[in-house]
């Protein structure tokens, strides 16, 4: 098995007729994902290389039986697109869009959490169960079906981690990019619980970065609830305080959210922390050996 998505998942793309939406919808289909449709208001009835376009998510779900969506609509409309997917009963929502106003996410966050739908992102690469379902913008070929659950707040750094685990012959169960914004739909803790339950996942690799306290909370949760080996890496050990480095979340403020604090919390929870980004795969091997 895997978590969240598998070979049976039927995916639509909200914003399918935009450049990025079209490009990645076709990329996902080529990977083997069941791309059953797309939504662009006002363009219902058209198709994108044979994939039908609908005016509303409700209609798309009714006609195709879709249970997952990836969202590529522009930032001003992203929160609304998320709520439309929730309203239509979509189970897994990956919001790829970067630059969503944070208060928009405050407004939808609790409604999504209360709905039973799972939101990944925004500002994320999406998620992939190698060999079965890719819904996002990650390069497919670096992944191999296998045993490591990879979760991350970063995009390209996730690819780096995946590539290392593939090269070590470990492969991945499901890889999830949580997103780099201050408010995202799914946390490390949510996924730790899912990976712990998942039979295919034998080890977990968590990639965090400076800012916030998500990694510390995950460490405490893992210590109490996770029996599987966990490895981690924290990006930004050398970043100076008070400077925002790309991600809206990646900022050390008031002395909180430093890499040192995070590494200490993770190690205290028995998690193997990679000292450099070149050793993320090795850290997983070490974590497995340690158990």
């Amino acid at each position: 098995m895997s978590i969240l998505v598998d070979g049976n998942t039927k995916v639509i793309c909200q914003g399918i007729t935009g450049n990025a939406g079209t490009f990645h919808t076709l990329g996902c289909r080529e990977y083997g994902t069941q791309m059953v449709g797309g939504v662009t208001p006002g363009k219902g009835g058209q198709n994108v290389e044979g994939i039908p376009v609908f005016d509303t998510v409700e209609e798309a779900v009714g006609k195709t039986g879709a249970d997952a969506t990836m969202i590529f609509v522009p930032p001003p409309f992203t929160a609304d697109a998320i709520m439309e997917a929730v309203d239509a009963g979509i189970k897994v929502i990956a919001a790829i869009t970067e630059g969503v106003p944070v208060l928009d996410m405050v407004r939808v966050y609790e409604k999504v959490r209360a709905s039973g739908s799972v939101l990944i992102g925004p500002n994320c690469p999406g998620l992939i169960t190698p060999g079965a379902c890719k819904m996002g913008i990650m390069p497919g070929y670096i992944h191999n079906p296998g045993k490591v659950g990879v979760m991350s707040r970063s995009g390209t750094l996730t690819y780096e981690a995946v590539w290392q685990t593939s090269n070590l012959g470990l492969g991945q169960s499901t890889c999830v990019g949580l997103g780099g914004d201050p408010i995202v739909g799914t946390s490390f803790i949510d996924l730790l619980a899912r990976y712990e339950e998942d039979e295919q996942t034998e080890a977990i690799l968590m990639i965090g970065e400076i800012g916030g306290s998500a990694e510390e909370e995950a460490a405490a949760f893992a210590k109490a609830n996770v029996t599987k080996p966990v490895a981690a890496f924290i990006a930004g050990r050398t970043a100076p305080p008070g400077k925002r480095m790309g991600h809206a979340g990646a900022i050390i403020s008031g002395g909180k959210g430093t890499a040192e604090e995070k590494v200490a919390a993770l190690e205290e929870a028995g998690i193997v922390v990679a000292p450099t980004p070149a050793e993320m795969g090795d850290a997983v091997v070490k974590a497995i050996a340690k158990k």
Binding site: S154, I210, M245, G246, P277
Partner: peptide, 23 residues
């Protein structure tokens, strides 16, 4: 490309004794 990879690249430069000029 990518904020997380950029942060990590700075980290590993410093790990090997160098000093990044920027993010």
């Amino acid at each position: 490309n990518g904020a997380g990879l950029a942060l990590s690249t700075m980290d590993i430069i410093k790990y090997h004794g160098g000093q990044p000029a920027n993010f």
